[in-house]
């Protein structure tokens, strides 16, 4: 049976598309799924460093499309998880080196081999975006609770609709419980009310994401982190499980204590 191609997109840059792609892909592979991550941001390769695989790249997406190498020679095997592969973006090429028809063909080939193909879309609504969505069966839209990010997400939802992707799922990233509590940040309900699409995940703002990215290992490996747990919940929802949404409230005393202790354990380990 053929797998599923999911595009991770947002419109606005810097809201966490690449981090989301890396974590969801890793999580799905940890559950035993065969996963291929595709970096569609040609010219601005990034998924490789977030995954910690930057030293292993030989060929890239454009090489495959131009027939310079076989697809399986360009796929980089993850160093930690079985069944997880990355097809890196070209770094030295123009973004119009690939056409939507070629991307679709590539995705169609990949989903014969993999359960999930996650395509990391570049920011914007131009050529690179059209390439990224060309072969997608469904879309994950990443936004943050800010005016500009939500506005761009709305725009993207409209464009996906025109492309027959009619039920994209929403991930609200970097929500800050303290700011929501004092009324200085839109909460999940506000964002859902405005965008009117199905929510699949809420990821709290978490410094651990930056720590994890510094080391080149997705934060989902550490499920004691709030963001790691949030990504893991999304993975389970993608797999059809009914997982309740995390309570986004400021930490109580017990929660703070628990985190402090678990961090201490981690340091010693």
């Amino acid at each position: 049976m053929a797998g599923k191609v999911l595009v991770v997109t947002s419109g606005k840059g810097g809201v966490g598309k690449t981090t989301t792609t890396a974590n969801l892909g890793t999580g799905l592979a940890l559950l035993g799924r065969r996963v291929c991550l595709v970096d569609a941001d040609i010219g601005l390769r990034n998924l490789d460093v977030v995954m910690g695989l930057e030293n292993r790249i030989v060929y890239d997406l454009v090489d495959v499309i131009e027939g310079q190498c076989k697809l399986r020679n360009a796929l980089i095997k993850d160093k930690r998880v079985e069944n997880l592969f990355l097809l890196p973006a070209a770094q030295t090429r123009e973004k119009d080196a690939v056409t939507p028809a070629q991307m679709k063909e590539l995705c169609d080939t990949l989903k014969q081999e993999f359960d999930y193909v996650l395509v990391d879309s570049p920011a914007g609504i131009e050529h690179g975006f059209r390439n990224a969505i060309a072969g997608a069966d469904d879309a994950l839209i990443v936004t943050t609770p800010e005016v500009s990010a939500v506005r761009d997400a709305d725009r993207i939802i409209g464009m996906l609709e025109a492309h027959e992707i009619r039920s994209p799922k929403l991930i609200v990233n970097r929500i800050r419980p303290d700011m929501v509590k004092r009324g200085d940040m839109m909460d999940i309900d506000d964002v859902i009310e405005i965008l009117a699409i199905q929510l699949i995940g809420v990821v709290p703002d978490d410094q651990e994401v930056i720590v994890a990215t510094n080391k080149g290992e997705p934060v989902i490996f550490d499920r004691r982190t709030r963001s790691g747990q949030a990504y893991y919940n999304i993975v389970r929802r993608l797999e059809g499980e009914d997982v309740p949404f995390m309570q986004i409230g400021p930490d109580g005393f017990v929660e703070r204590l628990r985190r402090l202790l678990s961090r201490d354990v981690r340091r010693r380990a």
Binding site: V147, D154, R182, G183, D184, M186, D190, I194
Partner: peptide, 22 residues
Amino acid sequence: SREEGSKKAAKDRLRLVLVHDR
């Protein structure tokens, strides 16, 4: 009374700009 913070402004402005965008 826990007055509304800047979130209300964000939501109102967003609603308006989206009506126009859409």
